[in-house]
Design a protein around this nucleic acid. Structure first.
Lengths: 187, 187
DNA sequence: GTGATTATTTATCATTTGTAAAAAAACCGC
DNA sequence: GCGGTTTTTTTACAAATGATAAATAATCAC
């Protein structure tokens, strides 16, 4: 079974028919480093799975860039607001390394959700996990200062530190790169 | 049809059987001002709907309090991480006014989700909307300073301003009450 | 390798936010 | 209405973060 479908099954078991119909809908795409998977103002019509590589989902306000999340191999994601509302995305997705993604079209997934209850259940759980992750992020941003958030990131995502630039990490933490550099130096 | 079920149908149409089975599972509870709907360390076993009143979902770190969200009449919510994982909640829910809630038990909802595809679809959409709201919150917290976040809150939730204390609003914005008072004075 | 480009650190100063304490205002029970 | 309680504002000072510029360090193209 292909990795995408395995990951779905791990989250919520799919019956055989659903698994194979899902697998039949999948496509793949290769991205070079710095290439966009999704640009701002275009509609996010896909649910992605990273077979290998690393991406960031981000936006910018004209001056600064802000990173919503990094996604690495084995992770499944989309830009949820655009995906659901089918409105142009305010977020863009860019590959931070050479990256291979598998994906399914939004309308195909919607159709599979209608046809197979188990796929709807899977998708519900996927969205739930995303929501829980965001709750944690909000809690951290409320409770912790930049220095603690950095320490927290190291603890949870230390392995990513080698793969992302400090500028990107600062954009994720919501501080300037200078400020992050300062925090790193006082330890 | 009862308000809870109407709101579900508005989000995602339920067939008649599902609607009536859902309605049969509902219970209600009255809360006085300052009474807890959920305490920290207990498992959130309910999906709530506010018929009237106002609540806050919050946590504290021993010293300060932080507010995840306010929910007012007509809104549906739960503490998602506890609800899904059935682990003790790190968040508590308290009524800010005399409040009437309707709710369904987690296990009843799970059962209805299994039985009625349309209820699973409704629940998926409910969680999706919650996730989209949290995306917006994270974006704002990254991009905007406290002063702008306050202005933004006024714009989006001005009607709530009369109903919540400034201390609570500060806890929601992630700043101290003194800081909020300072922001308010310079306009 | 070498020079150019990009990323990171350091330094300085301005601004924002936090802390603590007190004053003022609003609210509540009787 | 009065006294006590809670909420909000004000003040003064400390700490954290931002902005800008310059200095190092690392990376990349050739």
């Amino acid at each position: 079974m292909i990795e995408f479908v395995k990951t779905c099954n791990r989250l919520s078991p799919l019956d055989e028919v659903a698994s194979s119909e899902l697998e039949n809908k999948l496509k793949t795409r290769s991205l070079k480093k710095d290439q966009h998977l999704l640009t701002r103002t275009s509609i996010c019509n896909h649910l992605f799975f990273i077979d290998s590589g690393l991406t960031k989902t981000y936006f910018n306000n004209g001056e600064k860039e802000f990173i919503m999340r990094f996604f690495r191999e084995g992770e499944m994601f989309t830009v949820l607001d655009s995906f659901i509302t089918q409105q142009p995305s305010t977020y863009a997705i860019k590959a931070l390394e050479a990256t291979e993604v598998s994906y399914i079209e939004q309308k195909d997934l919607e159709e599979l959700c209608r046809k197979h209850h188990c796929i709807e259940t899977f998708f519900r759980k996927l969205v739930s996990i995303a929501a829980v992750n965001m709750m944690k992020r909000i809690s951290e941003m409320l409770e912790e200062n930049a220095s603690t958030r950095y320490a927290h990131f190291l603890k949870d995502n230390g392995h990513l530190l080698q793969r992302i630039s400090l500028g990107d990490l600062a954009s994720y933490l919501g501080i300037t790169q200078v400020s992050l550099s300062r925090i790193r130096s006082q330890r």
